[in-house]
Design a binder for these strands. Structure first.
Length: 586
RNA sequence: GGUCCUAUGGUGUAGGGGUCUAUCACGCCUGCCUGUCACGCAGGAGAUCGCCGGUUCAAAUCCGGCUAGGACCGCCA
């Protein structure tokens, strides 16, 4: 029997026709000499009817069917009587009178029900991922991801980008994340590294004259996992020659617009909003602000100047900041105990305390309200607070204030449901610092990566005040997630060498690690730049999920293992021998 | 590397020293049922309470360790 159509696509245009369907038994409702089967495939569910009246033989087989059996069935599409219509089903006005049915595959009872919204431990879902992926919401998420890719391929092809693959077995580089290493059999003791990104290759492709490159590239980083981080993930990676940062951003906006149109049918307004990194940190306490709600950070230094509250005064004297966020109508939502719990949480960002005031009709309430009696109007005005609001203050260094209040801002917005989930707020964050200080290494490290071009007017700072320099880099942010980022790259040897020097590389080390890039710069290298978008995060956000596992067919669990195949696993001594490796016992 | 949380039939859970011979729902099995779609009705099976040790007359319950998982900090150019 050849399949006529998908279950979910049977509609009134098939009325009276014979169809052949193949799929999985979603549900059997056995009424004796009348049996209903919901049959499921990737497009949806349709109801089959088996009856003594029209085919006793088929009814007998239907009696044996159980959930998740794979069957093929042929029958006639008929309209349901009015009172039998199921308005909840896409195919609810019709059903298929089954005349012939074959069991293609029997099934054990699955460990969880194949339906949306199941409440099951993630590990069990991953162990039986092939069952989990049968669930309609998973199918939709994976299909949505595919649609994004389709739109990306079409758009970039239209824009004359060339799709080029770069190696997965490549060279370990010192900066950045921990590498996944692959031992070489041919050169014992030598290792390939899986790419953290195709960065250097795509730059070399610009040197090769391809002008516009893109790739759907798998990237590997051996760091701990988070809801939005997997050890292997996919980037929509692109690079162009001769374009300005603005032009690259324009191209990217066109790409995002196309994806939003094709995948969700949503029109986004271009150009996208754009703020500097400084502004993002000052207003939102984050380099990837969620702009779907307010509660911005306000500087309270001036307003609390005369307040006899030592904590604030000490911080201000030391050159620190006193900033606040206002929780609208927050006074009733948070008890003293709850606020103190948040204060405890903030310790992990280095915050020593969380000062708070509830705005009442006659001033402030709360344990420190007494210090602020004389500045009620001033503080209310500065914070933009009204009666019933809760004002939360953090006084500390700039970084601690931003981290702590930035966290509180999003945490509270989620708790109080202040976020319009239907919004897709794209935002460029531009003009990043070129370097950030690493406590671990006691030196400056690249904020983006070591190949990022400084602002022209900051190039001289590389020799004198590197931490003052800003970069020609840009991140695209969506709803508080770093969706992607890119930069104009360095394409001249002397600037790249200055950069390596500022990063604390010796000339020899720069030469041995990145000599091939520096050499390439000597042979006529075009100015270039590009960007990479995290496909997994993009798909996660467009499908309304809160973990990228939900849009990856076979992800790792939060301990970086994969319960389905049990990777990683030990290997035989023979395999290790061939690689010249030995595993130490603990 | 660190902090916190969780572990009870197939699944999700209740139970926080004796009443547990372990609750409920879904699922599963058998029978009945011709208009169900959360089908219904009647009956049934299914759990060494994650593992090891300790406290106690007595441990699913308290304590310690381990294992597995989850969230977060660090880490993620």
């Amino acid at each position: 029997m050849k399949r006529t159509t998908y279950c979910g696509l049977v509609n009134e245009s098939f009325l009276g026709q014979q169809v052949c369907l193949k799929g999985w038994v979603q549900k059997r409702r056995d009424l004796g000499n009348l049996i209903f089967i919901d049959l499921r495939d990737r497009e949806g569910i349709v109801q089959l009817v088996f009856s003594q009246e029209f085919e006793p033989q088929a009814l007998k087989i239907a009696d044996q069917l159980r959930n998740e059996y794979v069957i093929e069935v042929s029958g006639i599409v008929v309209r349901r009587a009015d009172e039998e219509i199921n308005a909840k089903m896409k195919t609810g006005t019709i059903e298929v009178e089954a005349h012939q049915v074959n069991i293609l595959s029997k099934a054990k009872t699955p460990p969880f029900y194949i339906e949306n919204g199941i409440k099951v431990a993630d590990d069990l879902r991953l162990k039986y991922r092939y069952l989990d992926l049968r669930r309609p919401e998973m199918q939709q998420a994976i299909i949505l991801r595919s649609k994004i890719l389709q739109a990306v391929h079409r758009y970039l092809d239209d824009q004359d980008f060339i799709n080029i693959e770069t190696p997965y077995l490549t060279k370990s580089t010192p900066e950045g994340a921990r590498d996944y290493l692959v031992p070489s059999r041919v050169y014992p003791g030598h290792f390939y590294a899986l790419p953290q990104s195709p960065q250097l290759f795509k730059q070399l492709l610009m040197g090769a004259g391809f002008d516009r490159y893109y790739q759907i590239a798998r990237c590997f980083r051996d760091e701990d996992l988070r809801g939005d981080r997997q050890p292997e993930f996919t980037q929509i990676d692109l690079e162009t020659s001769f374009l300005t940062a603005q032009e690259i951003q324009d191209l990217t906006e066109g790409l995002l617009k196309k994806v939003m149109q094709n995948v969700l049918g949503i029109e986004i307004k271009l150009p996208l909003p754009r703020i500097t990194w400084d502004e993002a940190m000052n207003r939102f306490g984050s380099d990837k602000p969620d702009t779907r709600f307010g509660m911005e950070l306000t500087d309270m230094a001036a307003a609390v100047k005369g307040v006899d509250f030592k904590v604030f005064q000490n911080v201000l004297q030391k050159g620190g900041q006193v900033k606040a966020i206002v929780v609208p109508n927050g006074a009733d939502h948070y008890s003293r105990k709850e606020i103190e719990a948040k204060q405890d949480y903030l310790k992990r960002f280095g915050a020593k305390g969380l000062a708070w005031l509830k705005v009442t009709a006659d001033g402030f309430s709360g344990p420190i309200a007494k210090f602020f009696k004389d500045q009620v109007a001033e503080i209310k005005a500065a914070a933009g607070a009204k009666v019933g609001d809760l004002i939360l203050f953090v006084a500390d260094t700039r970084k601690v204030v931003a981290d702590a209040l930035g966290y509180l801002r999003t945490n509270i917005a989620h708790e109080l449901n202040l976020i319009d989930e239907s919004k897709f707020n794209f935002l460029w964050v531009v003009d990043w610092p070129l370097f950030e200080y690493s406590e671990e290494f006691h030196r400056y490290i690249a904020a983006h990566h070591p190949f990022t071009m400084p602002n022209e007017e900051d190039i001289h700072l590389l020799d004198t005040d590197p931490h003052q320099a800003h970069a020609q880099s840009y991140d695209i942010v969506l709803n508080g997630y770093e969706l992607g980022g890119g930069s104009i790259r360095i394409h001249r040897r002397e600037i790249q060498e200055k950069m390596f020097k500022a990063l604390g590389f010796t000339k020899e080390r720069a030469e041995s690690q990145f000599g091939f890039l520096l050499n390439a710069f000597d042979y006529g290298f075009p100015p270039h730049g590009g960007l990479a978008i995290g496909l997994d995060r993009f798909a996660m956000l467009l499908s309304g999920k809160d973990n990228i596992r939900e849009v990856i067919a076979f992800p790792k669990n939060s301990k970086a293992s994969e319960p389905l195949t049990n990777a990683p696993s030990t290997v035989s001594v023979k395999q290790l021998d061939e690689l010249g490796l030995e595993v130490e016992d603990d």
